[in-house]
Simulated assay, not measured.
Amino acid sequence: MTSHGLYLLEQLNSGCGYFIQADRCLLAKRTRYQDLALYESAHFGKFLCLDNLFMTSEADEFFYHENLIHPAAMTHPAPRSALIIGGGDGGAAEEVLKHPTIEHAVLAELDAEVVDVCREQLGTIHRGVFEDPRLQLMIGDGRTYLENVTTTFDLIILDLTDPQGPSLGLYTQEFYHLCKTRLSGAGLLALHVESPISRPKTYARIITTLRQVFPIVRPYLVYIPLYGTWWGMATASESSDPCALTPSEVEHQIATRGIEHLRFYNGDTHRSVFALPNFIRELLRQPVSPLTDGNVDLDEAPLPYRLKVVSEA
């Protein structure tokens, strides 16, 4: 499947997009749930696409995974259990299990073929985490799993695809309430919340939905090279606030917990990602309706495509 000079364009919204030049396509298939493709490029190394969206790459995965996990995990005084819904590439699980207090983590991934491909092809992202005895892999619907489990978790991580298709029901007020009932007293939910640059209405509605359920919601921003834009993330909790930690406290906890091989996250970045520009603050002050099981219309125009080949030498 060699395709030298392959240009892949992902349309971010109706007016702009982002392209990657790939050297070759390593794999393209239809799984039971979605289209899956694996490409290789000089800039990103191997990178994964699901349903025609860029997901993760060898070169920049730490921008996403470290920031998805550590602001919440470092805020909890001693997280012992974690649930990751989605995250079939293993990157989020690898970051969670850097915390030595974690005794048990569940990775609930809908699509077994995503796990199989990533396990074989993206070892530099998961770093063998699937072999860690603390990790339990559960193939199936994450919402169904959460409805049926009786235990609680110190961390719940939603490492989902964008709010469309099978993941849409995991962005609603009812689902966030379910997550709340499965969190321990100091527990935190961490998730990505779309981009305020390319999908501002969707971003605002997800944050509004979280605020209907949790008293402490902390949006934050990270630039993700593979996505070509700022990306929104958030923590949500009954009692734990990542903004209460000082940079020196974060650095002390990193050292005390013996966490190594961090390429992005440190005490200063922990605080800086939560510094929202004024236009984001204004966006989040606008009245929007929360997403519910009965109302998941995202109010933004559907795109004619999300990823396509625009040129091939």
Rank of each mutant, 00 (worst) to 15 (best):
P219V: 04
R306E: 11
Y176C: 03
P166G: 01
I224L: 10
G187L: 04
S289P: 09
I20H: 09
P290T: 07
L68P: 05
G88T: 08
L245T: 06
L12G: 06
T172N: 02
T292Q: 02
D141K: 03
G5T: 10
C16V: 14
E260P: 04
G90A: 08
F130E: 10
E249Y: 01
T151G: 13
F274P: 10
R182G: 07
D111A: 04
K46T: 04
D297T: 10
Q286N: 09
F19M: 15
R199A: 13
V213D: 02
L307E: 03
D89K: 01
R263D: 09
V217D: 00
E282S: 10
A234R: 04
P100H: 00
C243S: 14
C179K: 07
T31A: 03
A204K: 00
T292K: 00
Y39E: 05
L160K: 04
F214I: 01
F19Q: 15
P287G: 02
S240K: 04
E10C: 05
H4G: 12
T75N: 04
V250Q: 04
Q136F: 09
E94W: 11
G267E: 02
S184A: 13
R127F: 10
L221P: 00
N278P: 10
Y305W: 12
M138W: 13
M74F: 13
R30D: 11
D297L: 08
F62C: 10
V310Q: 12
R32D: 12
H126V: 11
G17P: 01
L155Y: 03
L38M: 01
I224E: 05
R263C: 13
D141N: 13
V250C: 01
A28C: 12
S167D: 11
E103P: 07
P79L: 07
V117K: 08
A78Y: 06
A255D: 09
G169K: 12
E120Y: 11
I139Q: 11
L135M: 06
A59E: 07
A275S: 14
Y305Q: 06
H4T: 15
T269G: 06
G232A: 02
T172S: 10
L221D: 00
D116P: 06
F279W: 15
E300N: 05
G90R: 07
A108H: 07
P304E: 06
T208V: 02
S311P: 04
F44H: 12
I254T: 08
K201P: 05
A255Y: 06
F130M: 09
E103N: 04
A73K: 00
A37L: 11
T172G: 08
R257E: 11
I206C: 05
I125G: 10
V96S: 09
S3F: 15
E40Y: 12
P225Y: 06
Q21A: 14
H4R: 15
L298H: 08
N266A: 06
H126C: 09
A37C: 14
P287A: 08
F264E: 15
T101P: 08
Q164K: 14
I139S: 05
G128R: 07
L36Q: 03
H65L: 08
K46V: 12
